[in-house]
Computed example of a mutant assay.
Amino acid sequence: MSLLVVDRLNKRFGGVSAAKDVSFSLAAGELLAVIGPNGAGKSTTFGMVGGQLAPDSGTVALAGEAITGLPPREIWRKGVGRTFQVAQTFVSMTVAENVQMALVSRNGRTRNLVADTRALHREEALALLDGVGMRADADRPVSELAYGDVKRVELAIALAAEPKLLLMDEPTAGMAPKERAGLMGLAARLARERGIGVLFTEHDMDAVFAHADRILVLVRGEVIAAGTPEEVRGDERVKRVYLGETGVKAALRARREAVAP
């Protein structure tokens, strides 16, 4: 059974169709990239899956349970984590405290705290930070970190909720090329090790074609192609309306580098 099933989602804003019969599925441990030009409907689709937007019609199911139109907080509690294009962290707190706050929230202790939050779930937070390569920085303020490291902390925060599904909105935005490759490689490894489905949007075609198992291409709110990186790379319509010859060459290079020993 698929982890996530999206069936014929539709969303209009005035006279503009931002999503038209968008359908796809995602398995546990799989990475599915949603790509397309600006205005393609990527953010709208993401918003409907994550609960920020209610679809006009269509359904979203997580592990066989309907989550269509539920508020983001409820969807989070059902096992959907998220990272954002601009990292969402508490910059005045330490790296470990950021993750501990997520663990406190997961365990339902956001109200009437009687203990110092800094003492709660410390070891679990350190283990999560170890998994993203940030344990050595646990007691540093987030404000002191390079942006690529902040993104790793945000990933640890998302994993604190033990998600079944992870939504990553432009995960490599603002990062240097080496940082992009490192973050996406880390996300792919953790997803497969933990059986987490990852749905992500991304403009960096190197990151997409190197790490996605499958790719969904949107143009003007409609799915024009879906399949493996090789299938999408060879799709003539995708070449014509989005990738172009330069993008195809970049996709080939990224895939070769990803599978090289």
Rank of each mutant, 00 (worst) to 15 (best):
V22L: 05
V95S: 05
M168A: 15
E193D: 11
T94M: 09
T228G: 11
E202I: 12
L129G: 09
R140V: 08
M101A: 15
V238N: 00
G197I: 09
D7E: 15
V91E: 06
A115I: 10
A226F: 04
K178F: 06
A158K: 10
T172K: 03
V198D: 00
D235L: 06
E236T: 11
D213A: 01
L165M: 06
R255N: 01
P171G: 08
D149P: 11
T110R: 14
W76V: 15
G41Y: 06
L167A: 08
V5L: 13
A96N: 00
V16H: 10
L53T: 09
K164T: 11
A119I: 03
Y147L: 14
M175G: 08
A146G: 15
G47L: 10
I67F: 07
T68P: 12
G174I: 09
A115M: 10
L190G: 08
D206W: 05
G131V: 03
I215Y: 01
F46Q: 02
D169H: 07
G234D: 14
G50M: 01
K11E: 03
L129F: 06
T246L: 04
R118P: 05
L32P: 07
V60R: 02
H203Y: 09
E245Y: 07
R240H: 03
R180T: 14
A173V: 07
E230V: 11
G108V: 11
P37L: 02
E123A: 14
T68E: 06
G197T: 07
F200A: 00
D7H: 13
E170D: 05
V5S: 14
R82G: 09
A258F: 08
D137L: 15
T201E: 03
L3I: 13
A40Q: 04
P72A: 03
P55V: 05
G50V: 12
I215T: 00
N107T: 10
R253V: 14
E30T: 04
P71L: 03
T89E: 08
V86D: 03
E74R: 15
V104N: 11
F90K: 01
S25C: 09
D235T: 06
L183M: 11
R253K: 14
G64E: 08
A33E: 00
D149H: 14
V132Q: 02
A226I: 14
R12V: 06
E74N: 10
K11C: 10
V60W: 05
L165H: 12
A176E: 07
P163H: 06
H203W: 07
T117G: 00
R256Y: 02
